[in-house]
Amino acid sequence: MTRVSTFQAAAVTDYAILLKSVSRVYGKGQSAVTALRDVTVGCPRGSFTAVMGPSGSGKSTFLHCAAGLDRPTRGSVVLGGVELSGLKEAELTKLRRERAGFVFQAFNLVPALDVAENIALPLRLAGKRVDPAWIRQVAAQVGLQDRMRHRPPELSGGQQQRVAIARALVMKPDVVFGDEPTGALDTTSGRQVLTLLRDAARSGHTVVMVTHDPSAAAMADRVVFLADGRLVGELEQPTLRTVASRMAGLGAWVEGIEVMP
């Protein structure tokens, strides 16, 4: 566990994303649920990090806090060198728009817009010029250059996820976040999506992805493990075998089993 020392030594700007002692408590009093407890994690620029852990361990909460979609109860988040806690809602949105792209498990696209329009949407929202050549290039990256005029309902689940990735990349963000982006996909489509994410990391974007799937995690540079809201482990250059054994060590693969770190 080198995490604390590394962060304090390194300059904040070396990390595309940095969470320092982040806690997130939902609700109050008796019904309060602590989803994250004092979590400190940094993702270096251009890295591909997978977040794993049993169900309910706080992975989604972690991702939301990291991306500025949710505000931590305690601790601080730095995204692309900007401390998020001081920002107003609109500033936060603008920052997110510029620096972060999102791919969710499902329901990613605006049904009223076709593929090209969905990909270009963040540019439009940011008031930027939409360069058709760039849109085509991004679409080509995800292999959808021939489906530009199709609407989301006319696409397969895997194709829809690829559109979402293209849209996440169109702003050339610092970080691309994915919350189980392959969760609803079959193996082949899932692999395509993961390859795209890894390529994105190779080309300089930082990728943070929550996943349940050890083989998906094995595509990452690094895996961080959460259990019961705590950071319980980290694995550099993971392989299917090391990830699987670490998860087994956490003893929680099956939903509903309470895990003690």
């Binding site: 979609l69 999102f102 969710f104 605006v110």
Partner: peptide, 16 residues
Amino acid sequence: TREFALLQLIGATRQQ
């Protein structure tokens, strides 16, 4: 609800 939320998630401000 969902449509508005999605727009916000992909970078639309509340104002937008």
